[in-house]
Simulated assay, not measured.
Amino acid sequence: MQFDILTLFPAMFAGPLTESILKRAVQAGTIAIRIHDIRAYATDRHHTADDAPYGGGAGMVMKAEPLAAAIRAVLNEVGAEGQPAPGSSQVVLMTPAGERFTQRMAHELAGYKRLVLVCGHYEGVDERVREALVDRELSIGDYVLTGGELAAMVVADAVARLVPGVIDAESTAEESHGGGLLEYPHYTRPAVWEGREVPAVLRAGHHAQVAQWRRHERLRRTLARRPDLLASAELSPADQAFLRSLGWQPGSTHELA
């Protein structure tokens, strides 16, 4: 899978997307990450990429011409796997006005061959670029950042780890937000630390009991911390019975004390 990130500040990406798991995935050829400077597509001598808003007001707006030229150039480039087939690329604008990014969206985006992440900045981008070239608008939360760069890093990281071959598929099977639930607690050696013991069920070696404990802990933690997730979580009759034993009522936002 190929990630193309369009930004006014390319230097911000030197580090976050070139370390750890993503670094190994790039070296292995499982994913490709390319950073594109939007200013390089401006045609004036000063490489101007922003201008004052029509109608007045504070701040600046990213100009349509250089941003559109950057998006089109990237979409027309032949990547490591050749020219992607129509519909296999997705142009995503990072903006506080977008849909809230979720794990389900990460799984969906991981199915594309090429993901073009456009980093908004200043007061935003010229609306005509949104209308003409953007497939989707995403936000990583209900707050405003100085620009879309940090948000693009989050999306790229969340999506890249779901690309087959980047990490062991078993590692993502029961993690937080998988199936709509939070992840269960984890423990490692030593068995006792500062008087706190690892739960006995995890040391007994009974796989079925461990699986049930982990499922119950996922349910318990989700109810305690994010009860809103239960409305759309994948719950079996046994799950619902366990939650009811904890005081959960379907359709409520009950939290544990």
Rank of each mutant, 00 (worst) to 15 (best):
A211M: 08
D37G: 01
A241H: 14
Q249R: 14
A25L: 05
V159G: 07
G178E: 14
K23S: 08
A224I: 06
D37V: 03
F13S: 02
T188M: 13
L6P: 11
R104Y: 00
S245N: 07
I71H: 07
L138S: 10
R100E: 14
G87A: 10
A156Q: 05
L182R: 11
R225G: 00
L8M: 02
R225N: 03
L115N: 01
D142P: 05
I31W: 10
V198H: 05
A257H: 09
R100W: 12
G124M: 01
Q103G: 10
V26Q: 14
L109A: 06
P199Y: 11
S176N: 01
L75N: 00
R196G: 00
P84G: 13
R39F: 06
L246D: 08
V74I: 09
L243F: 06
S139H: 09
R196F: 12
R104T: 11
R196W: 12
M153G: 13
G180F: 08
A110Q: 01
S89P: 01
T146I: 11
G56Y: 06
D37R: 06
W213N: 08
H254T: 10
A238W: 08
D157P: 12
Q103K: 01
P16T: 13
L117G: 01
R45F: 00
R114V: 07
Q83K: 15
A156N: 02
T172L: 14
L235S: 07
E175L: 00
P66M: 07
H254M: 09
M1T: 14
A200T: 15
L93Y: 13
H46S: 00
T48A: 04
